[in-house]
Design a protein around this nucleic acid. Structure first.
Lengths: 117, 117
DNA sequence: TTGTTATTTCGCTAAATGACGAAATGAATT
DNA sequence: AATTCATTTCGTCATTTAGCGAAATAACAA
């Protein structure tokens, strides 16, 4: 059961364009911090903070994998609200130019290339 | 067609508990600023600002009526996103205690009583 | 163990936001 | 025209937030 505080927290998490861009990226596949950092062109610490905000409201999950941390859309969005919000974001912005560019850049964002230099 | 900026603006509008409470109140019926101010127990200017934020992202409408301004959920939410968000808020928080209390207080908030003293 | 690398946490700064009261605006009434 | 009253706008203040770089942490590699 969701209360006002929980719901506001989820809306706050989505009330930032960088975080919406992250959700849109994660719709393709799980990503590590450095891949997202490459696409958003922000500092690693800033991206890490954004991810923790999305995680703390239950929209995404992290999973350790060696020295990487993979982030993904929470496959078990234990509420109708979160599920519908993710669907809403998922079906939105399909023609937005920034989102298209992010998706194009994501193709070039191979963690091995990014990290082994 | 919605772009990233528009969508972020709508999420920002909902990322505040007072504004979510306003949306929940407007689900019952159109309300003037003084009725909402009575329930939220905030200053008139603050409530007016909240209402303008909700209006500027297209979620609500205002309608002059004599010296009052009636605010209501926009009956013509010209986008799937706004429509689904309003539905989402509408179906959420039905058991939240603060929202219940707001609805109870709203019954006592008659604009004639509030304004004719 | 020591080094390397990915991520997180910390401390800071600049900008945005929510709150208020006071002043301005707009519409009805006298 | 002057007054009254609901609402909006303005100026200010305190708090929150997004951003960064540096330091701390965690996990693999040598």
């Amino acid at each position: 059961m969701e209360d006002l505080k929980d719901i506001t927290k989820v809306f706050k998490a989505l009330a930032d364009s960088s975080r919406v861009r992250i959700i849109k990226m994660l719709e393709s596949k799980p990503l590590c911090v450095c891949e997202i950092t490459f696409v958003l062109n922000l500092s690693t610490s800033t991206v890490s903070k954004h991810l923790s905000i999305l995680r703390d409201c239950g929209l995404i999950l992290d999973e350790k994998n060696g020295k990487w941390v993979n982030y993904m859309i929470n496959p078990d969005l234990n509420s109708n609200l979160r599920e519908q919000l993710i669907n809403l974001v998922n079906t939105s912005l399909v023609n937005d130019n920034f989102i298209k560019l992010d998706k194009a850049n994501l193709i070039m964002a191979d963690r091995n290339l990014l990290c082994n230099i």
